[in-house]
Amino acid sequence: MSEEKHHIVSYRTHAFVLLALLVLTGISVAITQLEMGPMNTLAAMIIAGIKAAIVLAWFMHLKFESRFFAFMVSAVVVVFLLVLLVTFFDYSYR
């Protein structure tokens, strides 16, 4: 009944994605052992963001679904970041 075409992701791709995620994990563990002050947090969050994007795109198939799914995810992330931002309008200026 379901007539949509399904994109089958190859095992090789999955393995590469895992490899990338593991490398990024290693980098983030290594980088946070250095003393870089607030840059630590920034670096760790950027790496986590990249890892999340990879998981979303490949493991969660966003890359292969209709564009609307990716749009929804981005919209939700934006809403969350805005909530965080607006909350800090309070906490940054107390």
Partner: peptide, 25 residues
Amino acid sequence: ENTGLYWHLVDLIWIFLFPLFYLIH
């Protein structure tokens, strides 16, 4: 597929929990 999506969500959360609690000095 949906169970997989759910599992990746669990992973996504952990991707952020891990550095925030364990790594950042």
